[in-house]
Amino acid sequence: MSWKPDHGSPICPQICEQMCVRIARGSLEPDSKLMSVRELAVKLGVNPNTVQRSFEQLEQQGVLYSVPGTGWYVSADVTVAKNAVKRLMQEHTAAYFAEMENLGLDMAATKQVIKEWEA
């Protein structure tokens, strides 16, 4: 995981988001075992309690499950993760259009910009 949390916003939701992205993308497979809380904490350079809290939140939402004594696993059902990522995509898209509007472009003009960019 080369991703690191950024500095401006709370770390816990950032970790939750990243986990969902990885699950939705398929780089973390259903029922696969995750690295331990401590390993992930070292890798991300964050506090182990923060990772623990993120995993617990994801467990409540049904994204992960834990097996006492062995560790954390990705849920067999990945719809929750996929829905979370979908919401993120919508948020990012809305933010993009809002920014373009600030630049004086309406929805139609922005779509034109995207088309030109693709070409």
Binding site: H7, G8, S9, P10, I11, N47, T50
Partner: peptide, 15 residues
């Protein structure tokens, strides 16, 4: 907590 600070202020502890 660090996350409280980031949440409430929208910035890092350093900032």
């Amino acid at each position: 907590t660090v996350d409280e600070i980031r949440e409430e202020n929208g910035k890092s502890v350093d900032a």
